[in-house]
Structures are given as structure tokens and as C-alpha cells.
């Protein structure tokens, strides 16, 4: 089958140029990725992605070098005529570890030349590109252009981006719910945000992969601050020095644990972000009084 469809997908200024014999609807990716379809004039990263069908369950080549659990396992292989490749064996999230591999994502070491091989199964089939495969692509590709994906919620408060980090249950979604009521506030995502730093500063981006609430926006904003949430008996906010924030940010980033060279780039990106963006610790109860507290970090009080 030839690639009859060209489907440009742009997430966090990363253009994933998808070539596929199936349309976006046939791949089942329109609902989740549709808001991100489009080709910007000047993307910061460009990924060529071919989708191809396999009649049999696809089999990754090479040895397992990293096991991310039930969602995917990373293999590394040397392919004659191609060189070193990474192959991620992807499973559906609801499947057990022993389930058949549903898709294999092959990537070159610079994550800009990819092939996703999938076996279609049943009338409700949808490509894993809409979920785990797409997320893995962005997670790796963004590292090479100064970025990282974070387990975080994020919003645009009248032109100022704020990222909320915290462990599961710390209150990221609760914060998003409180802010959603405020005029001029756009909640970009409650669970997965991308951030990229450059000489000018840092920018935060909504991604398609939200949490349970599924609120996602294809939107970006200059990043004014990163807020680490801890639940506490009283509301309070304090700056965290960059050195102390380093491990906090790193622990909440989706890091390329399979590749030491990419990991060095990723840690370099954390370093660049910390030089551009202030980090704060917010101890709070889940109540609206938190909003002016956070806004005091980047808003000048009215005269």
C-alpha cells in the first residue's frame, strides 16, 4: 500500500508529518489528535512518520533495553543498511504485560525518521498513534529541541503560562478546576504538558494526552512560573532555589530512560528551564483563595 494520505500533526511546535495509506478517520486518530492537525510555517522540530499495516502481530527486533511497564518496552537493534534503531513494542494500556504487541514504533537515534507498524483488529480498532505511540514520539523528539514533557497541569492566565507539578493526588486537577472559572484563563491540560526553553525564555504547551477529565487544548503560552503543589493545612507559597528544584522537576519529567545521550540532552533542558523560569512551592487547601496567591508571583498589584 502506498501512502495516500499526508496528515500533518503539530504538538508543541513539533511537526509530526504522518504519511499513511489510511485516512485520519480510518486510523481513528481524529478525535484525540484532530485539534492538533495542521502544518505551521516554522516548526521547531520536524518528524517524518510512516504508518504501515501488518497482517501479523508486529515483532520488534533487538534486545529489550528499557521496560516502561504495561504500555511499552524499548528495544535496540542494528538493522543492515539502516544502522542503529530503537523499536518500541507498544501494547494497549488496558492489556496485560503478556498481551500481544499491538504496534512497533521504529525510530532512528535522532527521532526524526519513524515508522509505526500496526495490526488492525476489530471494528473498534484505533491506532496507538492517538495515545501511547504519539506520546512516546513527542516525549523523545521534543528533547532534541530544548523541550520536555511533564506530568503536570498547565494553564494560560491572561497571557501568562503556569505549570502545576505534583504527585498523583496532590491537586493538579483540583487546581485546574478552580482556575477554569476565572475570566481569561485557559486550562491547557490537566495531566501532560510540554515545555521548551530557549535564549528568550520558556514556553508551555498543551498536549493531546490529558488525564481522566480529558480536557485538552492546542494552545501555548510563555511560561511565567512552575508551581509544585503540596496539600497543606494553610495556604502559602514560597520560591524554591534552582538547585533544590532540579530534582523536583526532573522527577516529574518524562525522561528518555532508554538512551544515555538523549538523557543528557533532557537533563540539559531541565537546567535551561531552571535558568529561565522561577519555581515555587505551593502549600494549599483546594479553595479559590489560592488563585490570588499564585497570581501574586507574576502580576503587579493594581495601583
Amino acid at each position: 500500500m502506498s501512502a495516500a494520505h499526508s496528515i500533518p500533526i503539530t504538538i508543541a511546535d513539533t511537526l509530526i508529518d504522518l504519511a499513511s495509506p489510511l485516512s485520519a478517520d480510518e486510523l481513528g486518530i481524529t478525535q484525540r489528535l484532530g485539534p492538533f492537525f495542521g502544518r505551521p510555517d516554522n516548526p521547531l522540530a520536524h518528524v517524518a512518520l510512516r504508518w504501515q499495516e501488518s497482517i501479523e502481530p508486529p515483532i520488534p527486533s533487538g534486545d529489550v533495553i528499557y521496560d516502561a511497564g504495561v504500555v511499552w518496552r524499548m528495544h535496540r537493534a542494528t538493522v543492515p543498511g539502516v544502522g542503529e534503531v530503537y523499536e518500541a513494542a507498544l501494547h494497549h494500556q488496558s492489556d496485560s504485560r503478556s498481551a500481544l504487541v499491538k504496534a512497533v514504533l521504529r525510530a532512528n537515534p535522532s527521532w526524526d525518521d519513524l515508522t509505526l507498524t500496526e495490526r488492525r483488529s476489530g471494528p473498534s480498532w484505533g491506532s496507538l498513534l492517538a495515545i501511547s505511540a504519539g506520546e512516546l514520539i513527542l516525549r523523545a523528539a521534543i528533547v532534541l529541541t530544548g523541550g520536555l514533557m511533564f506530568h503536570a497541569s498547565g494553564l494560560d492566565d491572561n497571557g501568562q503560562g503556569v505549570l502545576f507539578l505534583g504527585h498523583s493526588g496532590a491537586g493538579k486537577s483540583t487546581q485546574a478546576g478552580l482556575w477554569r472559572q476565572e475570566p481569561g484563563v485557559l486550562v491547557m491540560n490537566e495531566d501532560r504538558m510540554a515545555v521548551r526553553a530557549d535564549e528568550q525564555g520558556a514556553r508551555c504547551y498543551g498536549t493531546p494526552w490529558g488525564g481522566t477529565a480529558g480536557h485538552v487544548l492546542n494552545h501555548a503560552a510563555p511560561l511565567a512560573g512552575i508551581v509544585v503543589i503540596e496539600q497543606g493545612p494553610e495556604n502559602g507559597i514560597e520560591p524554591i532555589l534552582p538547585a533544590a528544584a532540579a530534582s523536583l522537576l526532573t522527577a516529574r519529567a518524562y525522561l528518555p530512560y532508554w538512551d544515555p545521550a538523549l538523557m543528557r540532552r533532557a537533563l540539559g533542558n531541565v537546567n535551561a528551564m531552571l535558568s529561565k523560569v522561577p519555581v515555587y512551592r505551593l502549600r494549599c487547601r483546594p479553595e479559590p483563595a489560592v488563585i490570588p496567591l499564585v497570581r501574586s508571583l507574576y502580576r503587579t498589584p493594581a495601583p
Binding site: 534552582p242 532540579a246 530512560y257 532508554w258 538523557m263
Partner: peptide, 19 residues
């Protein structure tokens, strides 16, 4: 991977060490 991030020396596991 050992790397200095904002003045802090972070040691991050790779591959099987992560688990």
C-alpha cells in the same frame, strides 16, 4: 547518567536500572 543541573549533581538511572 550523572549531570549537574542548576548546581545539583543528579544521578539518573538508564535502562534496566530504572526498574
Amino acid at each position: 547518567v550523572l549531570q549537574n543541573v542548576a548546581g545539583e549533581h543528579l544521578l539518573v538511572p538508564i535502562g534496566a536500572q530504572v526498574m
